[in-house]
Each structure stands twice: as C-alpha cells, then as structure tokens.
Simulated scan of single mutants.
Amino acid sequence: MSTESSRRLAWRKSSYSGNEGGECVEVAVAPGAVYIRDSKDVHRPNLFVQAAGWSSFVKFAVDY
C-alpha cells in the first residue's frame, strides 16, 4: 500500500495515550494487514505486518 493510500486508513491511538499528544504509536487495520505509524511523523513510511503476526504480538503483550 502506498503512503498516500495509507493516509486514508482509519488510524487509532491507544486509549492509554491521553489527549496531550506526545509520543504515540497509531495503528490502522486493513484487509489482511495492520499498519503502524509514529503519530509525530505521519509522513514517514508506515510499518505493516500481516494480521496473524499482529494477533500473535498482541497476545504476547497481553500475556506478558
């Protein structure tokens, strides 16, 4: 997905981020993939992982 296309995704921040801005990671879900970006620099290329990989990461983080 191009950077231009990824800007049209519905980006979300963690509910733990608060409203003060600052250093946040945002995620957006697309068919088969999850995109990740730095909220301070949204014009840089995004990282993306397959949905199964994201699912494994979240499970690990929750179980940790």
Rank of each mutant, 00 (worst) to 15 (best):
M1P: 13
M1V: 07
S2R: 11
S2L: 07
S2G: 10
T3L: 10
E4T: 09
E4D: 12
E4H: 11
E4N: 11
S5V: 13
S5Y: 07
S6H: 07
S6P: 00
R7I: 00
R7H: 08
R8S: 13
R8H: 14
R8N: 13
L9H: 03
A10K: 05
A10S: 12
A10G: 07
A10L: 10
A10F: 13
W11V: 08
R12C: 03
K13M: 01
S14T: 05
S14N: 09
S14A: 13
S15A: 14
S15C: 11
Y16H: 15
Y16A: 13
S17E: 10
G18T: 08
G18L: 11
G18K: 12
N19K: 09
N19W: 05
N19A: 14
G21A: 10
G21V: 06
G22M: 09
G22F: 09
E23D: 14
C24P: 03
C24N: 06
V25A: 05
V25Q: 01
E26S: 04
E26G: 02
V27L: 10
A28K: 04
V29C: 03
A30V: 01
A30S: 15
P31L: 05
P31R: 06
G32C: 03
A33N: 10
A33Q: 14
Y35E: 00
Y35R: 08
I36F: 04
I36C: 05
I36H: 02
I36Y: 03
R37S: 04
R37G: 01
R37W: 05
R37N: 04
R37E: 03
D38Y: 07
D38H: 07
D38F: 08
D38E: 08
D38V: 12
S39V: 06
S39Y: 02
S39W: 10
K40C: 06
K40I: 00
D41K: 09
D41S: 08
R44I: 02
P45T: 02
L47E: 02
L47R: 03
F48Y: 12
F48R: 09
F48P: 00
Q50G: 12
Q50S: 09
A51R: 12
A52R: 13
A52D: 15
A52W: 05
G53F: 06
G53P: 00
G53N: 14
G53T: 14
W54R: 01
W54H: 09
S55F: 11
S55W: 05
S55R: 15
S56D: 15
S56T: 10
F57K: 02
F57L: 15
F60E: 07
A61I: 06
V62D: 05
V62I: 13
Y64N: 11
